[in-house]
Amino acid sequence: MVAMAIAAPGLAENWVPVWMASPQAVWSDTTVFATGLPEQIAGATIRQPLTLGFPANRIRLVLSNVHGTRPLPITAVKLARSAPDAQAKDAQAVLFGGHAGTVIAPGAQVVSDTVVFPAEAGARIAATLTYGPDAVAEDFHWDARETSFLIDADKPLPEVLQELPARLTLSMVLSDTPARLGVIAMGDSITDGNGAPMDAMVRWPDLLARALAAEGIAVVNAGISGGRLLSDGMGRSVLARLDHDVLAVPGANTLVLLIGTNDIAWPGTPFSPEEAPMTLDRLQQGLMQVAARTRAQGMRLVVGTVPPFEGALPDTPMEETYWSPEKDALRRSLNDWLRGADFYDALVDFDRVLSAPEDDMRLNPLHDSGDHLHPGGNGNQAMADAVAQVLRKGWE
């Protein structure tokens, strides 16, 4: 009885995600997309600045090797206040079961011990990881929209050996500050931030987090560029990664899902030349599966309609095949079905938010990043405003 009473407070701790980068498997074919990683990480030290989307008194880091096929040795991890470029200050050691390093088993992740680290929403922090001599990069997040740094040593003013546009190993930051809602924004490159400037923190989930933190709502970004609902793309499908990236995340109780563009667009393109065209029935069944699984976990589901993309990806090998009238007709049918469905808790009509006023097959030029597929700064702000309006209604 005494032992149980002593252990209970630790077991009752509540944590909420305040930053996230969904893991992807590192690919070996870099003819289309370079990984952005160093040639090797054995013995390397990598500093990863990030912005907290919600306040914290204490922090825990989550490190991932979920796509790894071999153990990943980490010899040291530090958490610090981020300063310009690769600089850091007030560093603290991050321990794992009281040890300075850890070895992450293949297919697994590790959660650090608690670090006392008071920080406001919007605070800039940096996690610095030093890898063991046998470390191999197999697990990363490709399109970070923020620069990390390969450095000569973990010190306040290091020499930068290489700038990295990807995340490596670091997949989540948890806070002990209670949140009314723990929101995960899941989707493809539109959510991941393609089209948003590097290091500007203006992806729509970033803007949403800043808008809602003071209202007790924590928001993190689980987008993956090239993501699809039903099939693996540049990462696992939504259905395949739903458990790890949403349902198993502590403190997460709301999913905002925008997905479908690549399911509709990829068949017949250089990405998937032999794939049969997508059908409305398959998309409907996939989304209903997401609903069934989130509801079974007691989570709320907010679904988004698919924005237009006529003329997408000009001057690329995808230009001729990514969009077609038939693909747009399927997008419209999906959106019409979503507007009349009742399997979700709320709907955000991104299609109407982002469409051109007189041509609803195209993005509004004011919202377009320039590639006619990904929203720019104004578009991301419009998306964040639309989601905030829905979340502020609450589910009391």
Rank of each mutant, 00 (worst) to 15 (best):
Val306Ala: 05
Leu301Lys: 01
Glu326Val: 12
Arg300Asn: 03
Pro314Cys: 04
Arg332Gln: 15
Thr294Asn: 04
Gln297Trp: 14
Asp281Phe: 12
Gly298Asp: 02
Gly304His: 14
Pro365Asp: 04
Arg332Cys: 15
Leu330Arg: 11
Asp345Leu: 09
Ser355Val: 12
Tyr344Val: 10
Ala312Leu: 08
Gly340Arg: 12
Val303Met: 08
Val303Leu: 11
Ser333Asp: 13
Val353Asp: 00
Asp281Pro: 03
His367Gln: 14
Ser333Lys: 10
Glu275Gln: 15
Pro317Leu: 14
Val303Cys: 09
Ala312Glu: 02
Arg339His: 07
Glu274Lys: 11
Gln285Cys: 11
Arg362Thr: 08
Leu330Tyr: 01
Glu274Arg: 15
Asp328Gln: 09
Gly340Val: 09
Arg352Lys: 13
Ser355Met: 11
Leu334Glu: 03
Met361Glu: 00
Ala296Thr: 09
Met288His: 09
Pro325Phe: 03
Pro314Phe: 02
Pro365Val: 10
Asp281Thr: 15
Pro277Asn: 11
Asp281Val: 13
Pro365Asn: 01
Glu275Thr: 15
Ala291Thr: 05
Ala346Tyr: 02
Arg293Trp: 03
Gln284Leu: 12
Leu301Met: 08
Gln284Asn: 06
Leu330Lys: 02
Pro314Leu: 03
Leu287Gly: 04
His367Pro: 07
Leu287Trp: 05
Gln284Glu: 06
Ser324Lys: 07
Asp315Ser: 11
Leu338Arg: 06
His367Ile: 05
Thr279Ser: 09
Ala291Pro: 00
Asp345Val: 05
Glu319Met: 14
Tyr322Pro: 06
Arg282Trp: 05
Pro357Glu: 10
Trp337Ala: 08
Met318Lys: 09
Met361Lys: 01
Gly304Asp: 09
Leu354Tyr: 10
Gly298Val: 04
Gln284Phe: 03
Glu319Asp: 13
Met278Asn: 05
Met361Val: 09
Gln297Ala: 12
Thr316Ala: 04
Phe309Ser: 01
Pro307Lys: 04
Gly298Gln: 08
Phe350Glu: 06
Glu319Gln: 07
Pro357Arg: 14
Pro365Ala: 10
Leu366Ile: 08
Leu366Ser: 08
Glu319Cys: 14
Val302Glu: 00
Met361Cys: 02
Val302Gln: 08
Ala329Gln: 12
Arg293Gln: 05
Trp337Thr: 01
